[in-house]
């Protein structure tokens, strides 16, 4: 008892001494602190709220008795009006659009990053970087109509009207690739830029050319940063909505042909919710199940990318 009491007094005096020396209560300061904490809490609470709503409504969907979890994750036909809930019809096209987008964005973005970080003169950099940022600022609905009214006719002029349908996943995928290009290039460039200059000098000293230095020394050293950029780009492409809603088509179909129309998960949610669904219908609950699926996918990718970035940070500090 006495011991604890005395420690408390000591602690008290210590605290008093500390506040005398350093800390006066300043209203502005504590207000700022509270505000910052609030900002942090808002994003966390929002996430929790989203998870709660998605989980609750999805649970209603799976407990409705009209569909089993197995049917949901194994079926290839999605037509809610007649009770067919096979997520693969939607998931497949989401994956396909994402794959096409990555085929465009990754090589191009990496090339841009290497050019900007290793080759570009100050002048070229000062022109290219803002242009790329403009590309990132274009509203996605504009990209959607760009896909429908430019990319699709362009693909049709190459492959022929017979092969390329008016709504198709290829055009949507390519345009999403253009959309995420600035993201990939700027994140990768940051990673390349962060590689210590000594490594380059050592490579030059050993007689390596500029290209050899960039590809064999700088790029491997920045692998983790580049990988993180790729993963963020993939999750951005999976979640992209407006472009696929406009250009990819409006019917769920399980196809591997990129020139045929197919509906992605996000596109389906947009179309179905546009028709004012009734709140207690199975269709309404089904879009939450799709939403949950999307959320889990992007969350997993984000967690992976965080791990990757952490690893990267440890490498050069």
């Amino acid at each position: 008892m006495t011991v604890s009491a005395s420690t408390r007094t000591i602690a008290k005096t210590a605290a008093a001494a500390k506040s005398d020396l350093h800390k006066r209560l300043r209203l502005g300061e504590s207000f700022i602190e509270a505000f910052l904490f609030f900002c942090g809490a808002v994003s966390i609470l929002t996430t929790l709220g989203i998870v709660f709503v998605l989980g609750k409504e999805s649970l209603l969907f799976f407990t409705s008795g009209e569909v089993t979890l197995w049917e949901f994750i194994s079926g290839t036909e999605w037509q809610p009006a007649i009770g067919r809930f096979g997520i693969w019809a939607l998931l497949n096209s989401t994956l396909m659009v994402t794959a096409i987008a990555m085929l465009v964005a990754l090589p191009l973005g990496l090339a841009v990053a290497i050019y900007l970080s290793e080759y570009a003169s100050l002048r070229a950099r000062s022109i290219l970087k803002p242009v790329l940022e403009v590309l990132a600022g274009v509203p996605t609905v504009v990209y959607g109509y760009f896909a429908l009214t430019f990319m699709t006719p362009f693909l049709r002029s190459i492959f022929g009207d017979e092969i390329v349908q008016i709504y198709n996943t290829a055009a949507a995928g390519i345009v999403i690739g253009i959309l995420v290009l600035p993201l990939v290039s700027s994140m990768s460039e940051d990673a390349l830029h962060a590689v210590p200059y000594a490594l380059r000098e050592a490579a030059y000293g050993l007689g390596a050319t500029k290209l050899e230095t960039a590809i064999k020394v700088v790029l491997p050293a920045a692998t983790y940063g580049v990988a993180a950029a790729f993963i963020v780009a993939i999750s951005r492409a999976i979640g992209e909505t407006m472009i696929v809603a406009i250009a990819a088509g409006a019917g769920p179909s399980f196809t591997f042909n990129p020139f045929e129309s197919a509906e992605t998960m996000t596109g389906h949610i947009v179309r179905i919710s546009g028709g004012d669904l009734s709140y207690d219908s199975i269709d309404y609950n089904s879009i939450f199940a799709i939403g949950l699926m999307l959320f889990v996918m992007t969350l997993t990718l984000n967690i992976i990318s965080r791990h990757v970035v952490k690893h990267f940070r440890e490498e050069y500090e």
Partner: peptide, 29 residues
């Protein structure tokens, strides 16, 4: 610095993690 860090964190993590469909159906209508 901490302000900068927080804003950049929110921008980096918040951006891609937020599922786009939440906001966009309204546009479609």
């Amino acid at each position: 610095m901490s302000l900068l860090l927080i804003t950049s964190l929110v921008a980096a993590c918040g951006g891609p993690a937020t599922p786009a469909p939440q906001a966009e159906p309204a546009k479609m209508e």
